[in-house]
Design a binder for these strands. Structure first.
Ligand SMILES: [Zn+2]
Ligand SMILES: [Zn+2]
Ligand SMILES: [Zn+2]
Ligand SMILES: [Zn+2]
Lengths: 145, 145
DNA sequence: GGGCTACATGAGACTCGGTATCATCACCGC
DNA sequence: GCGGTGATGATACCGAGTCTCATGTAGCCC
């Protein structure tokens, strides 16, 4: 075991840049609002592009880990993914078109602190999601009655 | 079609009180913290009580609809159920023992309003969940190092 | 109490999101 | 280009939840 020769690529090089991964990124970029793994699979199939289901899930996980993507829980209990800034924040989700806007934490910190004090819990993390209608869908609702 | 004779039980009588439903309620009462349908199935099987999986899910749905139960989304994306007051509120969940405490909405309303104003969304509903350690588990962590 | 019916049950098949396996492939540092 | 490691994808698998349907039973009416 002479370390000098048996360790060709010891120092971590990060994830590889592959064609399927680029493809997933493209498909995500081509979407608006939240989406599921199945959505991406359908997109790929619709364009005749080969892309394994497992690869989609693995790439999503990779992007989640890198903070480029976040998973949200819809009111019906199902999951979806949204493109995201890596910093901590929360989401307002349009129930009609699925579009998502981020908002930050500022006022929520006070809520968290108050609950911690009252319950004795030590709060380590939290999740806040708002659901409603985005401005565009409100307009559409008003005119389409 | 003489309505008088063909409508034996027209006026809604609500859900029936059956042995399996009582059993599910007992199993839930015997639990602490959040639980899954599989937990209840295991409980029933452990006690040698016959209880179909489908019935568990249907009874949970019934209780959800009645507001006696709520579904929460754990940080890992999985679902669990908690016994709950029917009024709107939120949950602080212990990541170690699964215990849940309710807290109300008061301060959050201001956050929701601020986000609505800034984003133009019309917010219809929201979900807030806090995760951390309950007082008991904090104590245990301190002593068990 | 007995009959009746609509509702409830539960075995089992099925769906769907997600994971594990593993032989083959391709990125990339050399 | 080579080579090894990490990536791919077909496929099997898993677990939560739903659907179907033949059978069971709560509960209303008498
Ligand atoms: Zn975001
Ligand atoms: Zn919208
Ligand atoms: Zn509650
Ligand atoms: Zn605890």
């Amino acid at each position: 075991m002479t370390e000098t020769s048996t360790l060709p690529t010891v120092d971590r090089a990060g994830p590889r840049q592959t064609r399927p991964r680029r493809l997933v990124a493209e498909l995500i970029a081509g979407r608006t609002g939240h989406f599921t793994a199945a959505d991406l699979a359908a997109d790929a199939q619709g364009r005749g592009l080969p892309l394994g289901r497992a690869t989609i899930f693995r790439t999503l996980e990779l992007l989640l880990g890198g903070g480029a993507l976040e998973r949200i829980d819809l009111p019906d209990g199902s999951h979806a993914y949204v493109e995201c800034a890596p910093s901590h924040h929360h989401h307002a989700v349009c129930s009609r078109c699925g579009s998502v806007v981020d908002f930050d934490d500022a006022e929520l910190a006070a809520v968290v602190r108050a609950v911690a004090r009252r319950t004795g819990f030590r709060i380590d993390s939290h999740r806040l999601e708002l659901f409603g209608l985005c401005p565009a869908c409100q307009a559409g609702e008003r005119s389409a009655g």
